[in-house]
Amino acid sequence: MVYKIIRLTDLNLEDNRFHFTLNPSDRRLLRSVSEIGVMQPVIVILRQNRPVLIDGWRRVEAARSCGLEQLPVLEIAEKTDDLAVFLLAFFENYGQRPFSLAEKSLAIRKFHDFELHPAEIIGRILPLLELPPERWMFELMLEVSQLEKRFLETIHHRDWKPVAVELLMKFTPAERDWLFSLLEKLTHGQQREVMERLYSLKRKTGKSLDQLAREERLAGLIARVLKGERAAVDDLLTVLRRVSSPLISRLNQAIAEEIRQIGLPERVRLDYDPSLEKRVLRLTLEAAEQGDLKRAVDSLADSLERGYWKRLFQLLGYEGE
């Protein structure tokens, strides 16, 4: 390994064969480079007589932004093969920060393209990346690495987990395009839930995502979400939950209506398990003096006599489809 100072323009930045990280340069690095230049050499190797970057993409980006002309480099022996060089790039970054799933997929793609044997990738690299060392995961990562850059960047910046990415890959490429325009408007937690519910609906109904999105119950809400209406996201989720949990949603709606009919006295709170696993009600009553207590108890007794509670308990104990 040889230390050198090279001209920035000598670097062949179009050759990104060793590049798998996605973090852009940040302001702090930019400030630092503008003050003192690049102190820590980047790592390069000669390919076709030009230095190709192995590690140090953020520093090079910062140096270019700051108009630096020269850069310190450590040059690896040219005879080193690409796989050995990529192992260096990989481990140089490995110790510094955890990789996002998008970066993991790009790293696995590189190992694959540099002809590291799949068994070696599965048995050695996947555990290093805290991924299940199984072929399906290897294949999934290869597939993910081929996604468009905007998808990879979302997966990277939103820190998607394997289960969410696996779900995404179950949609057709055309569906993914459409889905992404929707997901971009949602928070991380909402993204996963919307994907899961739409996927399940797609499987259950046998309809394409496009057909589902044009259904009356969803079309208007989706259009509002795509326009950026935040309130529409909650409405969309409510409808999707209702569609995937018809029984529980229906019962909860009926229970809410019964509670409304009862007209609970002030300072009386009624709770129940909305999953309906437990069929008991919990009543909480606040009273500052005896009179408060009497009014609340009388009111409850009155509503009991009028039979409102019977239907509520029937709903809580419902058995059926």
């Binding site: 949990s245 529980i248 309906l276 696993e277 069929r279």
Partner: peptide, 13 residues
């Protein structure tokens, strides 16, 4: 439903 022990189950009703 996701029951208290974390498993998915058909709803109790």
């Amino acid at each position: 439903i996701r029951s208290a022990e974390g498993k998915y189950r058909y709803p109790r009703p």
